[in-house]
Design a protein around this nucleic acid. Sequence first.
RNA 1: GCGCCCGUAGCUCAAUUGGAUAGAGCGUUAGCCUCCGGAGCUAAAGGUUACAGGUUCGAUUCCUGUCGGGCGCACCA
Length: 592
Amino acid sequence: MSWCTCSTRRPASTTCWTACGETPGAWTLVWTTLTECLERAMRAAGWWSDERPARLELAVPRDPAHGDWTTNLALLLARELKRPPRAVAEELARRVAPDPEVFAGVEVAGPGFLNFRYSPAFLRRLPATIVAAGGAFGAADHAHGLPVLVEYVSANPTGPLNVVNARAAAVGAALVRLLEATGHQAAGEFYVNDAGNQVDLLGESVAARVAEWAKTAREFPENGYRGSYVGELAEALWRERRSEAEAGLARPDGAAWFRDQALERMQDSQRRDLASYGAEFALWFRESSLHASGRVAGALAALEERGVVYEAEGARWLRTTGFGDDKDRVIVRSNGVPTYLLPDIAYHLDKRARGFRHAVNLWGPDHHAYVCTLQAALRAVGLEPDFLEVLIVQQVNLMKFDPAAGHSVPYKMSKRAGEFITLRDLIEEVGADCAKFFFLMRSTSAHLDFDLDLARQQNDENPAYYVQYAHARIASILRFAAGRGLTPDPGGTVALDAAEEIALIRRLASFPEVVRGAALAREPHRIPTYLVETAAEFHRFYHACRVVSDDAARSRGRLLLAAAARTVLANGLALMGVTAPERMERAAEALS
RNA sequence: GCGCCCGUAGCUCAAUUGGAUAGAGCGUUAGCCUCCGGAGCUAAAGGUUACAGGUUCGAUUCCUGUCGGGCGCACCA
C-alpha cells in the first residue's frame, strides 16, 4: 500500500482529500479526518469508548458565523460526565489538533459547540482542487463497495407507466447514483410481476380486442383492461402476426400466446419510456423465472425447515408474528397456489444469494401496509433483520391553474376507464429534465403537488431552469473569456477574498457532505435544494464581482472559481439525471 | 375500529436524523442593465411550526392525547 505524502498520511488507495496533488480527482471528506481528530482528542482526555464513533455528529452549520464544521460532541459528553458543557468543550478544544493546512483553528461557542473554520490557504486552494477532481468531486468511498440493490418502479406489465411510476423512476435512478457516489456498489432492478392473474387478464383483454378485428365473437373479460393501449396492442398484433393471432383465437388454450405477446410488448414499451427518461436498469427480473427455476418451492422448503410454517383452514401460514408483523400470513392457498408473499420471499433470497448485502425497495403508497409483513417474512426465513429497507414513494397530484378559482386545483383525469396521464404524456408535456427536477425537489415520503402549468413555463417562474441557467451562464462566461485569450488560473494562486467569493467557495466545499447526507438518509431532494442555493450563491458572486476585466490575473482567478462552481452544479445535476446545458435558448414567447 | 404517511409564511415546500436567530420559490410591494446571458440581483412585508401536555442544556424534529387531510387493512399483486 502506498501512502500519500501530504500531511494527512492517508493510504493513497483511499485517497487524499487535500489539494496535495498526489491523487488528483480523488476526494475523501474532511469529515473523515475531523472524525479521527476528535477521536484522538477524546482518547487523550480519557473519554473514549468504542461505541462513541457511531454517535459522533459532525455537521456543516446553517449559519456561516458558526464556522465551516461544527460538532455537539461536548454537549453529549457533558451529560455522561456530569460536567458543565462549556468546560468539556474547552478541554476538547485544547486537545484537538486539526490539520493546520486545512483549518485555521477551533473555537468554543454557544452552549458548548466546537466550531472549525477553514484556513484561508485551504479556501484559496479549493477551486483548483474541485476543477482538478472534475466529475469525481463530491464522491467518496464511504461504503467500501457494499453491494446494494435498489428495486424501483416494478410496475405491473399490464399498462403504461403512470405519474407515480415516473416519480419512482426519478427517485430510484437518483438513489442508485447517490449510492455509487458514496462508495456503494449499487444496481437498479425492475421486478416484473408476470406470473399473476393480472397478466392473464391483460392477455384475455387483448385477445378480445383482436377478436373484433377477426370479426369473431369473444367475450371481453369482466374487470378486463379497457385502456386505449389494449386496442393498440391488438391492432399491432393483427397487422404484424395475423396468422398466429387467428390460430390463438381458435385454440382453446390460445390465451397464453396473447398473454406472452402482450407482456413482451408492454415491457418493451415500459423499457423505452424509462430509457428515454434516463432510468436504466441493470436487470429486469421476472417473477416467472422464480417459479421456473424452483426458487419458489425452495423458499417454501427453507421456511418449513425453520419451523415457521403451519397449516390451518386448509391453507399454509407463515408465522410472521414474532418477527414484527401483527398477524400471520397465508403463503399457500387452500387451492395449492402460493400467494404473492412466497415468490416475494424467494425473490429476496435470490437478491441475497446474488451477493447483495442490502436491498432498498421503492414502493407506491398503496403497498405501505405490506412493508412490515415482508420484512417479518424475510427475518423468518433467516435474512439479516435489516436486509430489506422500503421507501414509500407517495402519490402525485397533478395540478392545473383554474382561472375561475384563481389558483391551481387537482387535475381531474377523464372518467372514461383507462384514461390517465402516463409517464410519456408527462415528458411530452413538460420535458424529462423538468419532470425529474420537480419529482426530486420534494421529499419522497410526502405527497407531491405537481403544477403542470408551472412546469411547462419556460420562464423565471420555473425553478427547474434556475440551476440550469446558472450552469449555462458560467459556460457562457468561460466562452466569452476564452475569446479574449483568458483561461482559468489552474494553480489557484490568485487570492479570492471578496465576501461573495468566500461565501461561494465555502458553499462549494460543503457539496461532498451534502452528497453523503443525501445518500445516507435516502433523501435525494437534498441535492436540488443544495443546487438552488448554490446557484443563488453564484449569481450573487456574479453580480458583485466582475469576472472578466482588464486585470488578467484577477480574471483568471475568478474564472477558476466560476469553473469550480460549474463543476459542482454539473455534478449535482448529473446525480439527478438532469442535463447541464452549455447554453439555453428561450422558447418563443408567442406560443399560446 | 386498527395501522402507516402528512399538517411549517396567502400558495408549493426546506430546515444537515435533537442544535445556535425556522429558510427558499411563487404571489405582493419598492429598487438595480453604457459592461461577462435580466431565465439574474437587492430590499420590504408575511410565523403561537394544527392544538394541548411530556422528555432535557435545547423540540418543527422524539413520546402521549386531540383535531384535520391522505392511503391502506384479502387465501388480489
